[in-house]
Amino acid sequence: MIGLTLFLLISILLSWCGTKLQVPFAKQVFIFLLILILGLRHDVGKDYPTYELIYNVPDSVQANAVEPIWHLINYILRYLGFQARGFFFFTSVIVMVCFYKGIKNMSSHFYVSVTLFVLLGLYYESANIVRQYVAISILFCGFHYLVEGKIRKYMIWILFAALFHTSVLIIFPLILLSRFRYPPILLLAALAISFLFGNTILNTLINYVMPSLASLDLYQYGVDDFDAGVSSGVLKLFYNLFACGILFLFMYRPPSKCAYFHILLNMVVIGMILYNTFYLFQPARRLYLYFFTYLILLIPYCAEYFKRTSQLIMIGITYLIFLLFLIKANVGIPYNFDVSFF
C-alpha cells in the first residue's frame, strides 16, 4: 500500500501540472483514477468480507442489519448480473464524485485538499467503512448549502445521507451547531477536557446513558486492536496539538478570505472531541470522520496566515508528518485488485 500511496502522490502532481498547462479534464481523469483504484480493490479493509457477504447472501444476519436502501441497490446490481465487484465499484463512484464536488465547491486549493484526502488516510478508510463513507461523502458534497445558510436545502442532504447510514441522525444536530461562532478559548477548553478526561466521560456515558452496552461489554477494545499511531497514542497527541495550533491562529488572527472559516474550524474541533471521547469505543469513534474530514478544507485556508514561502513550508511539513503516520499505519499491508464484474 505504500507503493500505491507514492503512485497517487505522483499522479496528483501530474494532474496539477496538467491543470496548469490547461490540459482538458486533468482533474476529472485523476478522480477517475481514484475511482478505479478504490472500486477494483479486493479484500482491502477489515469490513470488506462483511460487505461481500452482505451482497452475496442477502438473507444473512449481516445483510438484515443494513439500511433498506442497500437491499434495493444490491438487488438491482444482482439483477443486472454484477458480482460483488459491482457493489464496491458503485459505492466508490458515489464517494469519489461527492468528494470531488465538495472539494471543488469549497476548497481554496483543489490539489492541496486532494493530497490531504490521501495523506490523512481518508481515501483508504473509505475502502473499509463503506456505508458510513457513502453518507459522509454525501454530506460533504452538500455542505456548501450549510455554509451558505441554506439550511432547508442542507436538511434534504442530511435526510438523503441518513438513508445510507442511520448514524447521520445521531450527528446532524452537532453539524447544525457548527454554524455558530464560539470563543476560541471555549473550543480550546472543550478540546482539552475531552483529551484529558475522554475515557472517564466514555465510561460515564456507557454506565449511565447506555447501560446495555456496558452489560454486553461491547466497548472494551484493547489498544493493540488499533492501527499503528493509534495504539501508541502518538497520532492522537499530534491531532490534538495540530487542532490547538489552528485554534491559537484563529484566536489572534482570523482569516479574511473565508467567510465560513469558523464553521470548518468548529467541524474539526467537534470531530476531535468525539475522537478523544470515544477513543476506546471504536463504533462511536468512527463518528469523528463526519467532522474531521473537513480538515482537508481547513488547512488550505490556514495557509492564508503565512506568506508565500512560509505557506510552502507549512504545507510541506504537514504533508510530511501525515505521510509518515500513513506509512507507519500501512506498512506491509497489501492492496489487491479484482476486475471480475460478472
Rank of each mutant, 00 (worst) to 15 (best):
L34Y: 01
K20M: 13
L33S: 09
Q28H: 08
Y79F: 15
L53N: 14
C98I: 04
W70G: 02
F90A: 05
S107Y: 05
G121Y: 10
K27F: 01
F117E: 02
L80R: 01
V57D: 15
Q132L: 12
K104C: 08
C98A: 15
F99G: 03
S108G: 12
Y145Q: 14
T19P: 04
I129K: 08
T115A: 15
I103V: 11
M106L: 15
S126P: 01
Q28K: 05
K104W: 04
G18A: 11
V61H: 11
L80M: 14
Y145V: 05
K101N: 13
Y145N: 12
L80V: 07
Y124R: 08
L80W: 14
M96D: 04
E67H: 04
Y111P: 05
I35K: 01
G39S: 07
K20C: 12
L119R: 05
I31N: 09
G102V: 02
Y123I: 02
H71T: 03
L21M: 13
M106F: 08
F87D: 06
A63Y: 10
V57G: 06
D47T: 03
Q83N: 15
H71P: 00
V97G: 09
N128W: 06
C141W: 09
L38A: 15
S107R: 00
H144S: 14
L34M: 15
K46P: 01
V93W: 08
W16Y: 14
G45Y: 04
N74D: 13
F117V: 00
F32G: 03
F32V: 07
C17D: 06
P58F: 09
I37T: 06
R85M: 11
Q28W: 05
F87M: 11
R131L: 03
I76M: 12
L120M: 13
H71F: 08
V95K: 10
V114D: 07
Y48D: 11
V97N: 08
F88W: 01
K20Q: 14
I69P: 04
V61Y: 14
V130I: 15
L33I: 07
V97Q: 11
E52G: 05
H144V: 05
A127G: 13
I103P: 04
G18C: 10
V44T: 08
I136H: 10
F143C: 11
Q132C: 13
N56W: 08
W16I: 07
S126G: 11
C141L: 13
K46F: 12
S126T: 04
I76D: 10
D47Q: 09
L139E: 11
C141R: 05
F30V: 02
L80Q: 08
Y133I: 00
I129A: 13
A65C: 06
F89T: 00
G81V: 06
N128C: 03
H71L: 08
T115I: 06
E52Q: 14
W16N: 07
G102Q: 06
Y55P: 03
F99Q: 00
S113N: 07
V118N: 07
V114N: 01
A63I: 03
L53P: 00
V61E: 13
T19D: 15
L116A: 13
G39D: 02
A63N: 09
V95W: 09
V44Q: 11
N74W: 01
E67Y: 06
R131W: 01
R131I: 05
K20P: 00
P24H: 07
E52V: 00
P49M: 10
L21C: 12
Q28P: 05
F99P: 03
I129Q: 13
F30R: 04
L53E: 14
S113E: 07
C141Q: 10
G45E: 06
